[in-house]
């Protein structure tokens, strides 16, 4: 996925031409000047201070930053789960703010697959039912949905856990189910907020690799918000988020060169 400016080095945010220039480019996600202000006890928290963020189709991007830097907030904006106070978010060149309730549900159902730190499986449902649910929301016929769910569970290595409930599975297995569920309706984007946050190092590594594998085999765009440095090695590009603003982008090639220093951060 070598983008136009992937040729190395650190690219400063918002450095390239904003609008107009690359309207025809294949940006699956385009966030422009996104601001988010939370009011808490009369005090204003500027969680996002005008973030510009673009992702190309098929890219694997990590949004990195310390806790409280605004990663989840940005994740929610891109995923159409929350609305910015200012700025716009385009998914596949569609302005999310312009969508009504049904269109938004359609977008969440078909275009985006979500993965969360806490797995968020439906506790009373089996792995199979969890994976089938988004397909049923998409009005797929049950038999068809079932076949596909089994196939997806096999793909994530859970072919023998189809009828297990979340409590009967380890964290890593639950997150695999979540990955399968995220892929249910062939989304263009998989959004993962701290997907390894509740997993041990080895299991986390496996989930990261699984995401990369899916990214490569299906061409799905993967965007993860994380502070797990294991993510550095597999990402095409890293957006460093500090205090609600993107400090800089680092491309993969640049990372390989200064590997040691990137890890030391």
């Amino acid at each position: 996925m070598s983008g136009e400016e992937a040729a190395g080095t650190v690219v400063s945010p918002g450095g390239e031409g904003e609008a107009g220039v690359d309207l025809l480019a294949t940006h699956i996600v385009r966030a422009i000047g996104v601001r988010k202000i939370f009011t808490m006890g009369g005090e204003k928290v500027h969680a996002l201070k005008g973030v510009d963020f673009k992702v190309e189709r098929g890219e694997y991007v990590a949004i990195m930053g310390p806790s409280g830097s605004g990663k989840s907030t940005l994740f929610n904006m891109i995923g159409g789960l929350d609305k910015p106070n200012a700025g716009k978010v385009f998914i596949d060149e569609v302005d999310i703010a312009a969508l009504n309730m049904y269109e938004l549900a359609w977008l969440r159902c078909h275009k985006i697959g979500y993965i969360f730190q806490t797995f968020n499986l439906i506790p009373v449902a089996t792995a199979l039912d969890n994976v089938m649910l988004p397909m049923l929301f998409a009005d797929m016929v049950q038999a068809e949905a079932q076949d596909k769910a089994v196939e997806l569970l096999r793909k994530v290595g859970l072919g023998d856990r189809v009828f297990h409930k979340p409590v009967q599975m380890s964290g890593g297995q639950q997150q695999r189910v979540a990955v399968a569920r995220a892929l249910a309706n062939n989304p263009a984007i998989v959004l993962a907020d701290e997907p390894t946050g509740n997993l041990d190092s080895t299991t986390g590594r496996q989930i990261i690799d699984l995401l990369r594998e899916i990214n490569e085999s299906e061409g799905v765009t993967v965007i993860t918000a994380t502070h797990d440095h294991k993510m550095l090695a597999v990402s095409d590009r890293i957006a460093w988020l500090t205090d609600g603003a993107i400090e800089r982008y680092v491309s993969r090639d640049a990372l390989d060169i200064q590997e040691g220093r990137a890890d030391a951060r």
Partner: peptide, 11 residues
């Protein structure tokens, strides 16, 4: 659970 279902496209 409700939030998750809405994320998955539940109306």
């Amino acid at each position: 659970e409700i939030g998750t279902m809405k994320c998955l496209g539940g109306l």
